[in-house]
Write a protein that binds this DNA or RNA. Sequence first.
RNA 1: GGGGGUGUAGCUCAAUUGGUUAGAGCGCUGGCCUGUCACGCCAGAGGUCGCGGGUUCGAGUCCCGUCACUCCCGCCA
Length: 600
Amino acid sequence: MKRTHHCNELRLEHAGQEVTLSGWVHSRRDLGGVIFIDVRDREGRTQLVFDPQETDVALVEAAGKLHSESVITVSGKVRQRPDETENSKIPTGQVEVVAAVMDVNNHAEVLPFQIDDPETAAKVNEELRLQYRYLDLRRPEIMRNMQLRSRVATATRVFMEEEGFLEVETPTLFKSTPEGAREFLVPSRVSPGEFYALPQSPQQFKQILMCSGVDKYFQLARCYRDEDLRADRQPEFTQVDIEMSFIDREDIYALIEGLLKRVWKVALDYDVSTPFPRIPYQEVMNRWGIDKPDTRFGMEIVDLTEDFGSSEFKVFSSVIGNGGVIKALNAKGYACVTQGQMEAMTETARSFGAKGLAYIKVENGEWKSPIVKFFSEAEKAALQEKLEIEEGDLILFAADEWLNACEILGKIRLYAAGKLVALGKLEIPTDQFNFLWVVDFPLLAFDKEMNRWYSSHHPFTSPVAEDVPNLTDDPKSVRGQHYDIVVNGVELGGGSIRIHQPDVQKKVFEDVLQLSPEITQARFGYMLEAFKFGCPPHGGIALGFDRLIALLCGADSIRDVVAFPKTAKGSCLMTESPAAVEPRQLRDLHIDVKVAKKAE
RNA sequence: GGGGGUGUAGCUCAAUUGGUUAGAGCGCUGGCCUGUCACGCCAGAGGUCGCGGGUUCGAGUCCCGUCACUCCCGCCA
């Protein structure tokens, strides 16, 4: 028997037809005489009826013995359900199939967890769901994520094809260039003692492809980073990787805005309005204290440096005297903060090196605060006006050097918002998508411990042309042609216009990043060489595809949109990888393992 | 590497200051039930309280260690 329809296909118009359905036993309702079974596949489910008055009694008995999730193929006639028995919850709810013949393709044993009830299934321990991932994937909620992922991947390819891009595959066996994330190494059998590295991104290959004249490249590229995991980070993940020649930043913005508009339309039938705001790094830090702001709610950070420059309150005025800033935010309605929550926020401030966290609680028309007595009337008036203080508010201050002050309040803003949402005092819409570009990042950041500059994006990022002369004398002032695309507090992707002149690239490696000429040559010699033989100006971007899908699905973790994700320790609970290997394999690879073998 | 959370029946969770035989719902098994759709009703089985050690007359509960999962910091050019 071969199926004639899938399980979300039959409607009233099919009544009278002989059909065959295949799928999993979703739920069985045995009423003693008549038995109902919902047969389910990835599309949906359809009710089968086994009625002893219409169906062979042996078949009815067999149906009564089926366990959930057994795989069956059933033939029978479609009919309209009797009056009052339609099920409006499912699209096939107006009809049913009167079973005449059944094959049990595979009899399922009792399951380790129930999957037919969405509410209980969603609560099952993730450890168990990952161990039996094939069962978890059958759940309509997860299957829907997989289907959406596939649709978005296709929409992306179609859009990029329309825009004239070539999809080019790049190697996953690459070499180690340890400037960035920690890499996964792959030992070479043929070259004893040498290793490939899995690429943390196809960055270098895609730039080489520009030298090749590919002009417009994209790839749904698998990337690998051997760093600790998070809800939004897996050791292997997928990027929509893009690179173009003869362009400037605006071309990338327009392309990505078009792509995201298409994707949101296809996936959610949601109209994304473009262009997205482009906000300089300096401004996002000033307003939201983070380089990936969630702009769906207010509580923006306010600068009070001017107002407290000559304050009686020495803690503030001395910080300003030393070149620091005073910033504050109004956590609207959070005067009800608990002591524990206040301590948690203070701890956040301390973790950034602050001495504490000054605050004002506005309760019963009074400003309750240990510091307000030091403020002049003019200072209070400035607070009142800039922070729009009202009854029930909580004002939180940071007095520190600029970046620290911003970051402290950025963290606290998100913490307070989370608590206010839980209290029902703040609403952050989940069906709204606030896209924005963060631009004009500093090209370089300083590593105090290592006492050197490092690329805030990556070393191939082109400086803004007019800042190039400052590269060696005043690295801090150099802006990079780097941009991040952010939505709802999630960094969806980032990219840059690249360096395409070999002398500038060499200067960045050797004079700014302080790599020796030997290391520069060994790691990047081939790129510098490629740049000498006709390299077009170019730039690109990479979008985190898993994060993109998680956003579209409303998933809290990218594990819910990856078919076979790994745990926080990087293991796959279903296949039990990673695992030990045979001594012979290690011999072939010239590897001597020094770790004591785990007891088995 | 660091901090927080979780771990009790197949699943989700209870179990009072440390106190008799560790409970419930779902699932499972058996029985009843001819229009259900999370079917319903009755009965039953099912436990190494993650693992190891300790304190105690007595530990699911307290202490130490350890394992797994998870969230966060560091890390993620």
